[in-house]
């Protein structure tokens, strides 16, 4: 089973990279963009066929290592 995990800064926490990209997009003429947030993407193979068990495992990985939950939130897809 493959897990696709996205980690981003929590809403409300200033994302300086997102801001810089937003300004760059603006100067390129993309005037309709707002709230650019930059994050990380982690993809991994899980030796697990039970989706519920895989979910528990991925959640635990996110909480313990992949995201720092003081500043970041995460979401994932399993498939």
């Amino acid at each position: 089973m493959k897990a696709k995990i996205h980690v981003t800064l929590k809403q409300g926490i200033l994302d300086p990279q997102g801001k810089a990209i937003e300004h760059a997009l603006d100067s390129l003429g993309f005037k309709n963009t707002a709230n650019v947030r930059v994050g990380k993407y982690v993809e991994l193979d899980l030796n697990q066929t039970d989706k519920a068990k895989a979910e528990v495992e991925v959640k635990s990985m996110c909480e313990k290592l992949l995201a720092n939950t003081i500043i970041e939130e995460y979401r994932y897809e399993l498939g």
Partner: peptide, 10 residues
């Protein structure tokens, strides 16, 4: 306690 973010100026 706490965490470090990227410098505001990047």
């Amino acid at each position: 306690s706490g965490a470090m973010l990227r410098n505001k100026s990047l």
